[in-house]
Structure formats: structure tokens, C-alpha cells
Amino acid sequence: MMETAIEIRDLVTHYGDREILRDVSFSIPRGRTTVILGGSGCGKSTLLKHLIGLLRPTKGAILINGMDITVMKEEELNGVRKRMGVLFQGAALLNSMTLADNVALPIREHTRLEESTIQIMVRMKLDLVGLSGFEDFYPSQLSGGMKKRAGIARAMALDPEFLFLDEPSAGLDPVTAAGLDELILKLRNVFKMTIVAVTHELSSLYTIADHVVMLDRGQVIFKGSLEGLRASDDPRIRGFLNRRPEAESYSPEDYFRFIAGD
């Protein structure tokens, strides 16, 4: 039995009146890579924002190492966030800073380490992601894949227990995306981190996933192993894995009524 690192219980969330996640419950095993899978708009990025404490749900609980972060005060939550590294979509590097300063920022902010130690750590993190020698480059001087790698180096700055990746390979060419997937595998193997990656890319899924949670229209439709996902006969899962477009959700007459405003 795998040890649970994060447990999500009956999570419900809204944007305004619109329900985004409906009774979402699943567990994230420790030291493994969990992929949250689903098509655009299924609620997976919203779910990730809840896991890192950026959004508060309408109801439900998120237990990280047994502690419910949905009821924590901001100060307490900041303590938990120090153990999390996050790669946001688009990497979210600060453009006015060099790569070295981007990676050093969380270390300078949260520790009392000497600058000489920080500089060595920064070079270690950049080497880890294959960016040795790029310390003095600015984000605007980098390719999309290099920016993502730099974003991972920054996410790794404080040696996090949890690494969250939002669409890590989206927008990258297949070779660059495959290189990034290899890096994610390496991080799990060497640092035994609990990794949570949100993606809709099947190639990433097949390379990095130990555990899969699939969302469809805000609901969990699958949780389990990659083998279990592949063997599923749920038509929504089969359609996604076989890259079939969804069936039209309403008739031409409904469409007419919708655009006519009836």
C-alpha cells in the first residue's frame, strides 16, 4: 500500500455561480508522479490552484501530510508553501532578472544562507535542468523549453517535498517536450519527490505517470494506474486516449435557440 501525501476530499468549487469542480475526491501517493489529466476546461488547472493553496474551495478538504490547508490561516499556509515548488504555465520567470537571480530569489527570501552558498546552489539547480552556463541570461533570451527548465530550477530552489507542474510540456516541440519529461522522471527518481503534473499531453502522460487522475467537466472519471486507464472501457476515456473529438453536446436546434437568445 502506497503512503498518501495529499488527500482531496469532496472538493466543490465555483467561479461565480458556475460550478467548476464537483465532489472531487482522490489521493496522491508519496514519492510518485501523479498526472491530473483532462481536456481543456475540465477544471484541472483550477484543481492545481487549490492544491497549492491559491484558491479556497466552496467546500471540501485538502489534506497535505494530514493537515487541511483549506482552513489554514495565510501564515500557516505560507509554511506549507515553502515545501512546494511550482512550475506555472509560461514558467512565470521575472523578466527583469537574470536566471541566476530568478533561482536565487526564493532562497534569499526564505533562508539566512550566505551569498556564496546561494551562488553554488543556484549553479547546482541550473545544472540539474541542463542550463549550466546560462546564469547571466535573461528570460527573454531563452527558448520556450529553456524557460520551462529555468522555471523548474526555480521551483526546485528550496528542495521542495512537493513539485507541482502546470502543463509542463504545453507549447513545446515534441523533442523538447520529451526532454522535459525525462527531466521530470529524473527528479522523481533521485529526489524521491511527490510530483503532481497537470497535462493534456498523452506523450507526457505515458512517460511520467505512476498514478493518474482524470477529470471530465469538473468530475473525477478515473483514478488509478496507467495500466488501469489504458484498460478502461469508459467512452470518455477511450475518446480522450484515441484523440477522438467529443460528440456534439447539443442539437442544431439547441444551437439556434442559444445564439438567437431564446
Binding site: 552558498t117 553554488i120 546552489m121 547546482m124
Partner: peptide, 11 residues
């Protein structure tokens, strides 16, 4: 040992 520890030994 974390990366700050390794960096310390490098130093």
C-alpha cells in the same frame, strides 16, 4: 542532506 548542505561542502 539538502542542496544547501551539499553547497556548503563544495565551499
Amino acid at each position: 542532506i539538502d542542496s544547501s548542505g551539499i553547497a556548503t561542502f563544495v565551499e
